[in-house]
Design a protein around this nucleic acid. Structure first.
Lengths: 226, 226
DNA sequence: CGCATAGTTGAACTCTCTCAACAGCCGTGG
DNA sequence: CCACGGCTGTTGAGAGAGTTCAACTATGCG
């Protein structure tokens, strides 16, 4: 009955959404959940597996992806603390979920999770909002993939990642290959364009995983095509 | 609270979903709906408009799209009879919806629509399933846009369109430009590849809008990369 | 009949990919 | 402690898929 990994954030419904961790409705959830840890690179589940659990990222980061028969990969999403994984999957997984770094998750049996959601209006709305949010960001990405140039994609990506962390600093726990597969580019192009942005002084990058948005306005205009 | 146009089909929940038109829960909806007609090319709403109605396509076809500041367009979806339009929009439209041919719609005030959905479990599930379905197809399209070649995209598109009509015949009410903007290609490429498929005997095409899938199996292997 | 719009086809160009080499980092083990 | 191999990231050069520009055809509508 479900299909994607979800993210509950502030845009829809209201502020309640972001505060998941401390909301009363979560109590009902926590009762049925168990904590688990996943090492970097380990899979939470694979395409084709039975979808009998729902997860929430507590710490770390998850990457969801799909594989084509010839090995081409597409990264559907990166999930960070607070995001749900595996909600909205049908009975069978349509994607693979792997930890891109040491990751802590809460794991809920799907039946129970759905029962709780069914009972609890507030949680139901939360899940619904997460679903809407997922759809909205999927649409943003379709525009990105369908019509944006490589520079525009990278700029958009950096801004998206920056939105999750308030200051200008961006942590990129994923590899260049992950970024490439997320943006529909190749590793080389990602690397080249990051270097170019660095050379132009738009971003700073001492280590490959740590980026600082130096000229955010410039990035924003680049993201939109300028 | 909403963001996209939705489509309720059979995959999720159950067969009930496809039979929308004849379901009991729809009675409640029809009470609050009014019928309307839209000429070819006319807009149902524009990006930025207040989102105070939800629509259902009765007849014809709707195209939803987004525009970038420099005029690049991306077509989010084509909506056909039975599909909902404008569900899951926030208070402001994030996309433009236009009729690609003479189109009949049912129009429901959003407040009332949401109230009915809130009341009616069955309808709620229907909307929820539609949302899941929209997300699933958005994910398919991200893979398509991110990793498929032009031929693979066209083949996938033709198969998608064919799935809506049982026989091998495909009606394409949209222009080549619409298809191009939907698949992240240019008009010329779409045209060229359709010609190529025709020359190879994979499809037949007497008029640009009518296509017959002659060798469906071939198309299917093309769609996946073979 | 003539103009506007949609579709097709050709040729040149370009952005991104592919292939290849190299650099940097890290953990393992001698 | 350093050498080594493996993995990730960077950079260069050449190739190619799809775009851009342009001309032409077909279709429909006044």
């Amino acid at each position: 009955m479900f299909q994607a990994s979800l993210r509950a954030r502030s845009d829809h419904t209201n502020a309640v959404v972001t505060a998941t961790g401390s909301m009363p409705e979560v109590a009902a959830l926590e009762k049925i959940g168990t904590r688990m840890t996943l090492e970097r690179g380990k899979a939470l589940f694979h395409e084709g597996d039975p979808a009998d659990h729902v997860y929430k990222v507590v710490n770390g980061a998850i990457r969801t992806s799909r594989l084509m028969s010839d090995g081409r990969r597409y990264v559907l999403d990166f999930l960070f603390p607070g995001d749900f994984v595996g909600i909205n999957e049908d009975s069978v997984r349509t994607m693979t979920a792997e930890a891109i770094c040491e990751t802590v998750l809460m794991r809920y049996p799907r039946r129970l999770f759905e029962a709780v959601v069914e009972e609890d209006r507030g949680l139901g709305r939360l899940v619904y909002a997460a679903l809407c949010d997922g759809l909205a960001s999927a649409q943003d990405r379709m525009l990105l993939l369908g019509r944006k140039t490589a520079i525009e994609r990278i700029a958009s990506f950096l801004l998206m990642m920056a939105d999750r962390r308030p200051d200008g600093r961006v942590e990129l726990p994923m590899t260049r290959a992950d970024i490439a597969d997320y943006l529909g580019l190749t590793v080389e192009t990602v690397s080249r364009i990051l270097s170019q942005l660095k050379a132009e002084g738009v971003i700073a990058m001492r280590e490959p995983t740590r980026i600082v948005l130096v000229r955010r306005a410039k990035l924003e205009s680049l993201a939109d095509g300028a």
